[in-house]
Design a protein around this nucleic acid. Sequence first.
DNA 1: GGAGGAGGGTCATTA
DNA 2: ACCCTCCTCC
Length: 792
Amino acid sequence: MKLLDDSDDFDGVPLSHRAMAARPAPYLDGLNAAQRAAVEVLDGPVLMLAGAGTGKTRALTTRIAHLLMLGRARPGQILAVTFTNKAAREMKDRIARLLGEAVEGMPWLGTFHLISVKILRRHAELIGNGDLHLKPSFTILDTDDQIRLMKQLIQAENLDEKRWPARQLAHLIDGWKNRCLTPSNLPRGEAAAFDGWGGRLYAAYQDRLLTLNAVDFGDLLMHCVTLFQAHPDVLKTWQDRFRYILVDEYQDTNVAQYMWLRLLAQGHRNICCVGDDDQSIYGWRGAEVGNILRFETDFPGAQVIRLEQNYRSTPQILAAASGLIAANAGRLGKTLWTDAEEGERVRLIGHWDSEAEARWIGEEIEAFQGGHRAALGPVSLNDIAILVRASHQMRAFEDRFMTIGLPYRVIGGPRFYERQEIRDAMAYFRLVVSPEDDLAFERIVNTPKRGLGDKAVQTIQTIARQNGVSLLEGARIAVEEKHLSGKGLANLRGLVTDIGRWHADAIDSTVRHVELAERLLDESGYTAMWQNEKSPDAPGRLDNLKELVKALEEFDNLQGFLEHVALVMDRDDGEAGEEVSIMTLHAAKGLEFPVVFLPGWEDGLFPNQRAMDEQGTRGLEEERRLAYVGLTRAERLATISFAGNRRLYGQWQSSMPSRFVDELPQDHVEVLTPPGLYGGGYGGAMAFAGANAGTDMHDRAAKADVYNSPGWKRMQARAAERKAPVHRTPVTIDAEPAAKFGVGDMVSHAKFGEGRIMGIAEDTLTVQFETGFKTIKAGYVRPVGDGDDVPF
DNA sequence: GGAGGAGGGTCATTA
DNA sequence: ACCCTCCTCC
């Protein structure tokens, strides 16, 4: 079928009644009853509660196809929002497959941010403050730019950057934007943050963005909402346009996104939100689980459809995951079931340290490859994923896999477009496209080195400010009036003329933008800079630059490319050969793998200490949901592991198995014995395997030899002595003084006052005091607070 | 006045 | 472990 394009003037145009509506629809075949309802209940608000692996994306895409086939809406009248570009891409592909043809016009299927940009570009002039307002050509800043800007503002106020770090301010402002709090509607109490400077700096930052004709990520949503609120006529046109609204991952929406959706949905009221409260893992960036929990009250008359049949995992994995998540309160509640074959229990293993853990996992993977696990059938490296809580855990695996030559890929690591060389090159592109982009100018003016240091930049800034022009323009004046001297002057003159020439070429449609980009990097000396650099990563950087230029080919011009990059920070890595995937649990959401390793299940790391400190029970529950997400990624085999010692912040620190380990339903867990346990010197590993058995894994002690070991008995005796929750107290090998303390405990120090233990290494503690982090011998601090926890 | 290295201070999830 | 600042040399 040929889909109509999106057009701006469809208002009031009746939809053609398609005869095919009455025909049976083949794409509905094979859906289960719940999925079918999710596809066919088209009118009014619908909440699709879709558990992990229940065919959510299928239901969602089929629903869109169905709307189109029935002629309920044209492609341009459906708003479909996702959180990631990947999800958007996948949906487009699947809709196309369902309809048997490429979908030309689904212009409003995309991320919140992408769609917001499209809307904002059309009404940019309406966003502003006094005389300042946006132009449709506004640029989108990334975090790096944001922080640099804020640094400048903090300096402008003569504040101490140490006491008021720009990162912290960025975080604060981000939080406000997530909640749609503009400088003018910011509550007093909030504005007082940052020692009273918060509100003022925020306002200054927003004004600065306007003068730069720029927005940051948070603005995209917030500006849309304020636009809708201040201009009902504008809102009305968008409400009229979007006959059907679909939202993926609704549990991850923040306040701004929620308001955005509500405003738009108030028109036709056909909003279908898909989500799973058990997979809400983005509270730390403003997501409100409350949005999904409240759906039925927010949208009266909403229909709730539960997708509970799981098509991904074995019953064993599902049972383990369900048992774990059951410890959370305040869930909407779902009962996942499957008719898949029983499968293997979730495996659990403890290791001496993080290196042993990496070694063991590497060996396991090699064993899979050697076909030593026939029950699983052939396992490709692409079928295997290692999901970690924090990215620093990846290092151990990378090191290990590198040495044994096991191919791997890190997903969501340092992103391509966040790399230094790419950002530099992009700054050149930006400046050439919009010469008034001061941030870009600052970035490249002395990269490569041109003898234009702080002093020279300051001179340029002063001149620009005096004349009320951009930095580039200011530089031109500085050259003409010879405000600089010698080498700097000559170099700046060269740079200014170069940029002028490149800019002319960028506008000239006869100049191919790819060639321009190549020439630009060449003539600016940027490529040469890396060629002359002899550090080991220089060749890689040059490759990245080549790749960047190659990526340009897919766009019509530089502007289009820059827009894309601003919004799509992830690169679709080409399918290389067979590789094990390493990624964070957050990055793993929505993915699935036959074989999944879940290393680092240690208290403090996972659940993460900070999450618990900052959010209390809420934080802990989010961590538990993260564990749930991790387990439910596995189709056939999941292996959880923990290490007794881990290198963290440059020190070895001991830790205890995660409390989540205790919460796993034991009938669905198989405890493996760590290799080398009896080789001597592994008392610590045994001890803590035993510490764990002290709770609900006790029954299995007889089965696993490890629990008969002296280490375990010693541990058990000790645990009994102190009656404290076992997992709160770390064990060191020879009852070093540090054994009195646990990560997370409060201690007091004669000089530094009270603080919280963040890490333990032998008898040295890393303690976070009010004044900062300190590394201290355990003997110098005394425990405070809940004395039960820390017996003497 | 700029560039580059050394040392000190600071920071410790997750997009 | 990393970033930033200060210092020294050019």
